[in-house]
Design a protein around this nucleic acid. Sequence first.
DNA 1: CAAACGCGTAAGTGGTAACTTACGCGTTGT
DNA 2: ACAACGCGTAAGTTACCACTTACGCGTTTG
Lengths: 103, 103
Amino acid sequence: MDAWTALGDPTRRGIFARLVDRPQSVTELAEELPVSRPAVSQHLRVLKEASLVRVRQVGRHHIYRAHPQGLAQLRSELDAFWGTVLDNFKQLAEQEQADDREH
Amino acid sequence: MDAWTALGDPTRRGIFARLVDRPQSVTELAEELPVSRPAVSQHLRVLKEASLVRVRQVGRHHIYRAHPQGLAQLRSELDAFWGTVLDNFKQLAEQEQADDREH
DNA sequence: CAAACGCGTAAGTGGTAACTTACGCGTTGT
DNA sequence: ACAACGCGTAAGTTACCACTTACGCGTTTG
């Protein structure tokens, strides 16, 4: 699953946002979320497959943290969209202005 | 539905990408996609609700085009993520370097 | 070494959303 | 005016995915 689809789910976006804020363990995340701990685990797996998070095991805690890799891909695709959309939008505005001038 | 969830679906992302490339009618989109025309219509409704596209009726054709508004919100949220993630990532790298120096 | 912790995963369930077909309304062409 | 086009929407089906409970494995603590 790619980063787009991974962050498409609201719960997963919430988990990711918390990990962006600070690294956290699975139980820690589950405590402040309206879903069970296994559910969080499953979401983390998806985020990991999308290269959006990384795990580091310390003792019996699995510390998850946000990772730039997946986000970078997302960002480049979004910027590509943004560039052309904005260009076309501006071009359309200028076109309309020109149309107005020749009433 | 917000822009994140709207673009979370692959088919919808495909439709949006085509509209970023150039404005198109519903039938035109459906012809080059593996889904029926009504399915495209339903996806376009979602994209419209997320302020990602706009419609302009010309004759009996409904011309859809990508619109910056929904994308702008998405971009700002993503940039917020990106900023802190990258900061934390760099900070971690420097921390590890410092740890290495004091072996 | 036993008990408790932290977690991943398997199995099963329910809800939902993506899709289909069918239909009806406006618009264009003959 | 009538037929054809372009589209939106309603209704129904299906597949998937988010979630739960149950279980088992490694790790730490007493």
